[in-house]
Simulated assay, not measured.
Amino acid sequence: MELVSVAAVAENGVIGLDGELPWDSIPADKKQYRTRVADSPVILGRRTFESMRDDLPGRVQIVLSRTAREYGVETAHHAGNVEEAIEVAAELAASLGSETAYVLGGGGIYALSQPHLDRMLLSRVPGAYDGDAYYPEFDADEWLLERQTEYEGFTLEAWRRVSLS
């Protein structure tokens, strides 16, 4: 299974403020992101899960949280650490016929999953924003920028890991 991080990131690394995007919605980004993850398992933190509860992404969700709980959503599964989340995602991906699982945040979840990622799909949003959640810095020597695709309001960067540390 391939593990791919998907995030919208401002020029200063901000990805969120008070559980929301700090910029106005970018419909083209939401559409490409939702289409991409629609049939795959997604890994996300509890707060991110709660913020998306009315419109959950992916076919199944693995909620990474130190505290096990009922989520009241049939497609939600709990994982207590990143290794367990990846294991559950691999099992669910295989059962769905998917070769990919996506990491959707928040900031802490992106940081925990960074050493395990095969690829990153980063929607680069122009401008710097105030925020309280950031996409983690990564060693550019370990990654290859395969392509950049311009969209209205953002640029999609596709990164592939070239070496595992």
Rank of each mutant, 00 (worst) to 15 (best):
P136L: 02
V60M: 12
F154C: 05
A38E: 12
D54R: 11
L96K: 05
E137L: 11
L44W: 01
E83M: 13
V37E: 02
L96R: 08
A79I: 09
L104M: 13
Y135S: 00
R119M: 05
V9I: 15
Y71I: 15
W143D: 10
T149P: 02
E99K: 15
D18C: 13
A7H: 08
D139W: 06
N81P: 06
F154M: 01
A85G: 07
Y71A: 05
A101Q: 08
G108M: 07
E74F: 06
S40M: 02
A68N: 14
G19H: 08
D132E: 07
R47S: 06
L156E: 07
V125G: 12
L122T: 14
R160H: 05
F138H: 10
K30Q: 03
L144I: 14
H77L: 03
G153L: 03
A111V: 01
Y102W: 11
S51F: 03
R160I: 05
S165I: 07
D139T: 12
L104A: 07
Y135Q: 04
G127I: 04
P41H: 06
I43T: 03
D132W: 14
A90Q: 14
G80M: 13
Q114A: 14
M120R: 10
E84T: 08
A133L: 07
S51Q: 10
V103R: 08
R69E: 15
Y129I: 01
P57A: 03
G97Q: 11
A89G: 12
G80K: 14
A85M: 11
V103W: 06
L145Y: 12
S113G: 13
Y129K: 03
M52T: 01
R161L: 09
E70W: 01
G13K: 15
M52A: 06
V88C: 07
D29F: 07
Q61A: 11
P136W: 03
E152C: 09
L164S: 15
E91Y: 02
S123K: 05
R147A: 12
D118E: 13
P22K: 04
A93T: 03
D139Q: 07
F49K: 02
I62M: 02
T149K: 05
